Simulated assay, not measured.
Amino acid sequence: MVQAEARMVTRDPANVIIPLAVPVLLLVMNGLSLENPDEELRSGVTVMDYHAVPVVLALVVTMIAVMNFPGYLATYRKTKVLRRLAVTPASPAMVLVAQIVVSFLQMLFGIAIALGIALQFFDTALPDDVLVAVLVLLALCLTMYSVGMIVASVAPTPNAAVAMGLIGFFGMAALGGMFGPMENLPERLAEVGSWLPFGAAVEAFQSTWVGETVAWENWASLGVTTVLGVAVASALFRWE
């Protein structure tokens, strides 16, 4: 099942290339546009490390989980694939798990590409606390998958899933630092952005880069969003 889902994903070049290319493009743009990307905020941690790399990591996860992932499930529902599978040993839940596995591998590949470019060409430092950074990444994946499941649950068609995913993605990312540090936003918007899961993840990654304790508000945002997402998706999701 995982192999079949991987084959389906690779047959759509846009859904493979865009989530990998856009974060890299944003990384390069930040490297070129930041006034002093090599300025050290703390020993060994530059402006590039602190502001650009956490945003890029959050972008990879969010684009795949909120934009790509729901579209496949909506397509399977519209084409009656899930209904047909419901009467076979290969249940619709197996499709869901297989799709999550494939998209998660795609996330890891995208993160590896982005970090590789950052390390090779921008002399980016690894997080001071790598273990906590990995935990933040896993928490972000769970959160964004739960948001993606909400989109898949309420979207009547694949096009609707794409549109809703785009709105959710840009709404969270714009307030979470995609177009510049959150502190550059008006105070109220910055506060809203920091409570949304994208902004909370960016702040959490920033804390791991400088060796600070991740704020409880960041964990709370990711945790509450995950619980709400799972609850809403469980109540609204239909296989057909």
Rank of each mutant, 00 (worst) to 15 (best):
R42E: 12
S43T: 14
T46H: 05
V47E: 14
D49H: 12
D49Q: 09
Y50I: 03
H51T: 04
H51M: 10
H51I: 05
A52F: 10
P54A: 06
P54S: 06
V55E: 06
V56S: 03
L57H: 12
L57G: 04
L59K: 07
V60Y: 02
V61Q: 05
I64V: 15
A65V: 04
A65K: 05
A65L: 07
V66P: 02
P70N: 05
P70Y: 00
P70H: 07
L73N: 02
A74D: 04
A74N: 02
R77L: 04
K78C: 01
K80V: 01
K80F: 03
K80W: 03
V81K: 00
L82Q: 08
L82P: 03
R83C: 01
R84Y: 11
R84S: 08
L85C: 08
A90L: 12
P92V: 01
P92F: 01
A93D: 11
M94E: 10
M94G: 08
M94I: 13
A98K: 00
Q99A: 14
V101H: 12
S103T: 13
Q106A: 15
L108Q: 09
F109N: 03
I111L: 15
I111A: 10
A112N: 05
A114D: 02
A114W: 02
G116N: 06
I117W: 08
A118T: 02
A118Y: 01
Q120Y: 13
Q120M: 15
F122Q: 11
T124R: 01
T124M: 14
A125R: 14
D128R: 07
D129C: 08
V130W: 12
L131Y: 13
V132Y: 12
V132T: 15
A133H: 03
A133P: 02
V134G: 12
L135M: 15
L135I: 13
V136Q: 02
L138G: 15
L138M: 14
L138K: 03
A139C: 13
L140M: 13
L140Y: 06
L140D: 08
L142G: 15
M144S: 09
S146T: 10
M149R: 14
